[in-house]
């Protein structure tokens, strides 16, 4: 038999090994990276970067896919491929905006509830439960109607509810960690509450939080597309996947490319984040 070389197995290598064994996860990572690269390089890789503005080219409207317009053109003659790639920008902005606020807030509240206990715990878990009872779509539509139906308000609406999932998740982990000997040992060594929360407990939650956040990214993209499909998204003419599907809908089935391209883009990004999240879960060995 082949005697193994006693090379040290580092934690990073073992994690990468588990991740790379999961082919779906690698595909997910490739998809997510491709979305990020396309979004970042959008002005340079798209054929008609000016088509994201209010360009009107009636001679070319509803053109079928060809060598010049890979995914055809829409009702104003704008290139669908260009607009789809730029549409990712709005989706990703929503992801960053919503998760960038709700994940830290949820994690801090969850950790505090689990660690301090008592009234802190009662108030935070109570609030979490109440917020979980509100359907996110209803909340978003309500805020969109009361304020103004735009992307910022949609983001606020989703963020207001999204932190609860993270708070609950982190709370559960913290409760089990808080009774570990190493937390008491840190306290006996003179560590402050801040140190215990952010240096002792948080590193043990990072794996779970990052898995959940990746899976959430897919949800937020879908959710954002739903809202803009319903007219609560960005203002035209800024390209946005959900509103592109809504706009193209009236020309179905003849002008199928106008719906298919943004629809597929939503599917592509969502799938990528979901597969990546599953892969991370394997890598961190997180039990759901």
């Amino acid at each position: 038999m082949s005697q193994s070389t006693p090379k040290e197995l580092t934690a990073a290598y073992m994690s990468w090994y588990r991740f790379s064994r999961n082919h779906a996860a690698v595909i997910g990572a490739v998809i997510v990276i491709s979305v990020l690269v396309m979004t970042a390089l959008a002005p340079w890789i798209t054929p008609f970067p000016d088509h994201i503005g209010s360009v009107v080219d009636f001679r070319n409207r509803h053109a079928a896919p060809d060598a010049q317009n890979w995914f055809g053109t829409d009702k104003a003659g704008r290139d669908v491929f260009t607009r789809t790639i730029f549409g990712f920008r709005v989706s990703l902005m929503l992801v960053v905006g919503v998760l960038g606020i709700s994940v830290p807030v949820g994690a801090v509240l969850g950790m505090s509830a689990g660690y301090f206990g008592g009234w802190t715990e009662r108030i935070i878990t109570g609030l979490t439960n109440v917020m979980l009872a509100i359907p996110p779509l209803v909340m978003a539509l309500a805020i969109g109607n009361v304020l103004e139906p735009n992307l910022t308000n949609a983001m606020i609406a989703i963020t207001l509810l999204w932190w609860t999932w993270h708070a609950r998740l982190v709370y559960r982990i913290t409760v089990s960690i808080a009774s570990e000997d190493y937390i008491e040992a840190a306290r006996l060594a003179g560590a402050s509450h801040m140190h215990i929360l952010f240096r002792e407990i948080l590193p043990n939650c990072v794996a779970v939080i990052s898995v959940k956040t990746t899976l959430d990214a897919a949800f937020v993209i879908l959710f954002g597309a739903t809202l803009s499909f319903l007219g609560f998204g960005v203002k035209p003419p800024t390209p946005d996947l959900g509103s592109m599907v809504a706009d193209g809908r009236q020309f179905l089935p003849e002008k199928w490319w106008e719906v298919l391209a943004p629809g597929f883009a939503i599917f592509y990004a969502t799938l990528g984040f979901n597969l990546l999240g599953d892969g991370l879960r394997d890598m961190f060995d997180v039990e759901d």
Binding site: E180, D181, Y182, A185, A186, R199, E200, P203, N204, V206
Partner: peptide
């Protein structure tokens, strides 16, 4: 095993 924080 439980008195040392695995992440530190």
């Amino acid at each position: 095993g439980t008195s040392l924080n695995p992440k530190r």
